[in-house]
Computed example of a mutant assay.
Amino acid sequence: MVERNRFLDLLAHAVLLLGVAVVAFPLWITFVASTHTVQEVVQSPMPLWPGSHLLENYHAALFGEGSGGGSHAPVGRMMWVSLVTALAISIGKIAISLLSAFAIVWFRFPLRMTVFWAIFVTLMLPVEVRIGPTYQVVSDLGMLNSYAGLAVPLIASATATFLYRQFFLTVPDELAEAARMDGAGPMRFFKDVLLPLSATSTAALFVIQFIYGWNQYLWPLLVTTEERMYPVVIGIKQMISGGDAQTEWNTVMATAILAMLPPAAVVILMQKWFVKGLVDSEK
C-alpha cells in the first residue's frame, strides 16, 4: 500500500494550478480586451477586469462594423466559411481514408502493398512542400475563392489511412467469413461491420481533423483574395492594419474569442468519444 504524502499532494496541485494559470491567463486577457474600448485596450497598463462594452464589441465583430484600419468583413460570414471548410476536410479525410484502408486490407490485387507505401510516403510531402504545384492546379481549375479550393487539396490523408489500416488488420477474418456465409457483399460488410467497429476511432479522427481544418492559415491565405471567402483565421490577420492606421484591438480580440468557440465546442461535446477512440483497446 502506498502512503499518501500531504506535502507531495499540495505540490502536485500547486504545479497543476500554475499550469492552468499559464494557459488561461492569455485567454483571460483576450476576453478582457474584447470588453473594452480601443482606447482602454491600448493604454498602459491595460485593464485586467472586464469592461462594459462586451455586447457592443461582439456585435461589431459579427456584423463587420468598424471605422479603423484593416478588414471589416463580418466575422459571422468568416466563421461560416471556416465551418464549411473544416467539416469538408474532416468528413472528406475520414471517408477517403476509410475506403482506401478497406481496399488495401480486404481486397487482394497486384501491387497492393506498393499502393499502400505510395500513400504512406506522402507523409513526407506536407502542403507546404507541394504548395506551388497545388496552387497552380487549383488556379487552372478555377477553384480560387471557393469552398472546393479551400477544402479539396487538403482532403487526402496518409495518416488516417494508416490508422484505419492498422485497425482493420486487427479485425478477425472470421467476421468476414461469417458475413460472406450470410450473403453479405464487400460493401455490406464494410457498412454493417467495419464502420460500427471503427466508430470511436472515427470520432477521435473527426475532432483532430476538424481542428486541423479550422486552424488552416497558409493555404487559405493563397487561395482567397476576396473578403467573402476569408476563413476566420485569415480574417483576424486582415483586421490588423499596418502603418499609421489604428487597429481596433477590441474587435480583433472579440473575433479571436469567437474563433475559439467552435473547436472548443467540438472537443467538449465529443470528449468522451475522443478519449475512448485514443485509449480504447477492446476493438
Rank of each mutant, 00 (worst) to 15 (best):
A148K: 13
G149K: 15
L150W: 14
L150P: 12
V152F: 15
V152G: 07
P153H: 07
P153N: 12
L154F: 11
A156V: 07
A156D: 02
S157I: 03
S157W: 06
A158K: 02
A158Q: 05
A158F: 06
T159G: 05
T159H: 13
T159M: 11
T161G: 12
T161W: 10
F162M: 07
F162L: 09
F162H: 02
L163V: 07
L163C: 03
Y164Q: 10
Y164I: 04
Y164A: 04
R165P: 03
R165N: 09
R165D: 05
R165M: 08
Q166N: 08
Q166I: 01
Q166M: 05
F167I: 01
F168V: 00
L169P: 01
L169G: 02
L169D: 03
L169H: 05
L169Q: 12
V171G: 00
V171E: 00
P172K: 01
D173R: 11
D173M: 13
L175A: 00
L175F: 09
L175E: 02
L175I: 00
E177K: 03
A178H: 10
A179M: 07
A179G: 10
A179I: 07
A179S: 14
R180C: 10
M181I: 12
M181H: 14
D182S: 06
D182G: 05
G183L: 10
A184H: 11
A184P: 01
A184L: 11
A184V: 01
A184Y: 09
G185T: 05
G185Q: 04
P186E: 14
P186K: 12
R188C: 02
R188E: 09
R188L: 03
R188Q: 12
F189T: 02
F190I: 01
F190G: 00
F190E: 00
F190K: 01
K191M: 08
D192T: 08
D192V: 06
D192H: 14
D192Y: 14
V193H: 07
V193F: 04
L194Y: 02
L195G: 02
L195A: 06
L195Y: 05
L195H: 06
P196M: 13
P196C: 12
P196A: 13
L197W: 09
L197E: 09
S198M: 11
A199E: 10
T200H: 09
T200I: 06
S201G: 14
S201R: 12
A204I: 08
A204K: 14
A204M: 12
A204E: 11
L205H: 08
F206W: 15
F206V: 10
F206Q: 12
V207M: 07
V207C: 05
Q209F: 15
Q209D: 13
Q209Y: 15
Q209I: 07
F210T: 08
F210A: 09
F210Y: 13
F210N: 10
I211F: 08
I211R: 06
I211T: 12
I211D: 05
I211Y: 05
I211A: 09
Y212D: 12
G213Q: 09
G213W: 12
W214M: 04
N215G: 13
Q216C: 07
Y217S: 03
L218F: 14
P220D: 00
P220E: 00
P220H: 00
P220V: 00
L221Q: 13
L221S: 14
L222T: 05
L222Y: 09
L222C: 04
V223F: 14
T224P: 02
T224Y: 01
E226I: 08
E226W: 13
E226Q: 14
E227M: 05
E227H: 06
R228V: 12
M229Y: 15
M229Q: 14
